[in-house]
């Protein structure tokens, strides 16, 4: 007889059970129960946001090179646990071929974003030629705490595709796992926990989106929300909930299996542009240096 594993949630680098003590059963494609999963509550969202906020300063101020190293480490760790992910993907209804492709694509995508960590700034930033004696430059800075609602279509690749550009850019994340296929999300949390990612940078909760999303979307300490392939209804209600503190709401409709479903645009959506002015003193008057 198989042991029915209980999947816990991932907050502040720990694996607590949900505050509410509730679980729900996740079934395989044939309808057989495969796991018990936490049915997280508003309080878990609160805790996750708190952890993400705490982690934001240090993570965004960490050197970009170092963030790249950590993302690459995540890819390495994921590579070491391919088998487990393939098994879970199959359990949740994938064919073995698709599962293999999904894990390989996921690893590639993490490596791809690992490479971006210390490069996107140069593309998004600029030196601006103003019409006065000032040095003026614009840089990209992380938006802050980003709430991500998982794409229901894919268990792992969607998660990786949504998560990586957000943290590559220096943001921290509260991630609501796909309701029906949350296994990979929690197993991925185990990957994160064993890579060098600091606690709180990514927090993953499982449960029912309609219970958690409004809390996350209304939370005044969340700076942005990220939806992927969500229904119009969810998009609209999320946008309405986001108004009170003017969260940036990013909605994409991508097929994450596509090779082109990646790029700097996914990073820049969670960046703010900061422009700095400073006077330039023309020492010595009118003489040119040429």
């Amino acid at each position: 007889m198989n042991i029915l594993k209980t999947y816990k949630i991932y907050i502040a680098g720990q694996f607590p059970r949900t505050e509410s003590g509730r679980t729900y059963v996740v079934n395989d494609a044939a309808g057989n129960p495969i796991a018990n999963v936490c049915q997280s509550s508003k309080k878990d969202i609160r805790n996750a946001v708190q952890a993400a906020r705490k982690a934001f300063g240090p993570w965004s101020e960490r050197s970009a090179f170092n963030r790249g190293q950590i993302l690459y480490r995540i890819a390495e760790m994921l590579g070491g646990r391919k088998a487990q992910f393939i098994e879970e993907l199959i359990q949740q209804g994938q064919t073995i071929e698709r599962a293999q492709i999904e894990i390989e694509t996921s690893i590639d995508r993490i490596v791809y974003y690992a490479g971006w960590c210390d490069k996107f700034q140069q593309i998004l930033s600029s030196v601006n030629p103003v019409n006065s004696s000032h040095f003026n430059f614009s840089v990209a800075e992380a938006t802050g705490v980003v709430g991500v609602l998982a794409d229901e279509q894919t268990g792992l690749l969607g998660l990786v595709s949504q998560l990586m550009p957000v943290i590559a850019g220096g943001n921290t994340v509260v991630f609501i796992a796909a309701e029906k296929s949350p296994l990979c999300a929690i197993t991925f949390a185990e990957v994160l926990a064993t890579s060098d990612l600091p606690a709180g940078v990514v927090n993953i909760v499982t449960g029912f989106a309609n219970e958690m999303l409004p809390t996350l979307a209304e939370h005044m300490d969340v700076n942005a929300l990220y939806l992927s392939n969500a229904s119009n209804e969810i998009v609209k209600s999320t946008q309405l909930s986001a108004v009170d503190n003017l969260k940036r709401v990013v909605v994409v409709n991508e097929d994450w299996n596509q090779e082109k479903a990646q790029g700097i645009a996914f990073i820049s959506s969670f960046q703010e542009i900061k422009t700095t002015w400073h006077p330039i003193e023309q020492i010595g008057g009118a003489t040119s240096s040429y």
Partner: peptide, 30 residues
């Protein structure tokens, strides 16, 4: 979104302008 160091209230068409948080989103200029 805009930091003036040793100056203040300078504007230029080439200089992106706009805020963080409840000051809005999107940039104007540049």
């Amino acid at each position: 979104g805009v930091i003036w160091s040793n100056t203040y209230n300078k504007f230029d068409p080439a200089s992106p302008f706009g805020g963080y948080k409840e000051s809005g989103f999107g940039r104007e200029g540049g």
